[in-house]
Simulated assay, not measured.
Amino acid sequence: MNTPVQIGLPQVVLFLIAVLGIGLLISSLMGLFSSRRELEVFEDEDGRRYRRWRKRRRELRWKRGTSGIIMLILAVSLLWLTFAVQSYLGLTNDIKVARVHANTFTNDPHNMDLQLTMLDKNGNPTSDERYSINGDLWRLECVMIKFPTWMNILGIHSSYKLTRLEGSYNDSKLESSSPHVVVELNGGVGDFFNQTYGNSLTKPFVDATYGNGVFEPADGKTYDIYVSQTGLYAKQASN
């Protein structure tokens, strides 16, 4: 599985804002629920006097806690802003994971010559292979691990793994009766679902696990494949 961690200046700034918000939150709560100390004077049988500080129980100080309430509102607002902005950055910062180019044969329209280039999270090629695939459309599949929203503040992108390449036919009759070629990528799906979502140790940190795929026609055009926080999608390559 690939789990990109997107750490840059925006994430650093948001982390500092979150720390400030948590600090204000703790300070404001301590200000609202503060304890008092009172000086008490005791006198024994011989007339000697003793002084002792006595700590009163914590109580809610509404009248003197106005500034604390304002700080509390400010702290919650900063934390909400941090999560909202980081979630937006995570949802809009997609990663290019592959490039696909497929051509059909003139004398064999239901077969294609396909070139698949897989990329790492920095856009560098990790493999470049050619395949002969049956069908009119190519389909690239992956498995995904979606993390809880609160983990976005750490810049953690959804995990993904490209698992399968195959073709399909536009005609449903051909789809059910014609041969298919399935290419397993990166070891396939394996026992992915049982090892992640079914594992009680990973459940607090895993929001969902699922399979996802994108398909396009073998029209001779080149497509860039991106992974978002929710799955794969394809765009025609600009170069």
Rank of each mutant, 00 (worst) to 15 (best):
N152M: 09
I153L: 15
G155V: 03
G155K: 07
G155A: 04
I156K: 06
I156R: 13
S158D: 02
S159T: 15
Y160D: 02
K161R: 09
L162S: 05
T163R: 01
R164S: 04
R164N: 11
L165N: 05
S168K: 13
S168H: 12
Y169Q: 13
Y169G: 10
N170A: 05
D171G: 08
K173W: 02
K173T: 05
L174Q: 00
E175G: 08
S176Q: 10
S176H: 00
S177A: 08
S178D: 01
P179G: 12
P179T: 13
V181Y: 14
V183H: 14
E184T: 13
N186D: 11
G187T: 11
G187A: 09
G188N: 14
V189P: 07
V189L: 11
G190R: 15
D191A: 04
F192T: 15
F192Y: 15
F193N: 12
Q195R: 09
Q195I: 03
Q195F: 04
T196V: 12
G198P: 03
G198D: 02
S200M: 07
S200T: 05
K203F: 02
K203G: 01
F205R: 15
F205I: 15
V206M: 06
A208Y: 00
Y210K: 07
G211F: 04
N212T: 10
G213C: 02
V214M: 07
P217T: 09
P217C: 04
A218Q: 09
A218F: 05
D219F: 08
G220S: 06
T222C: 01
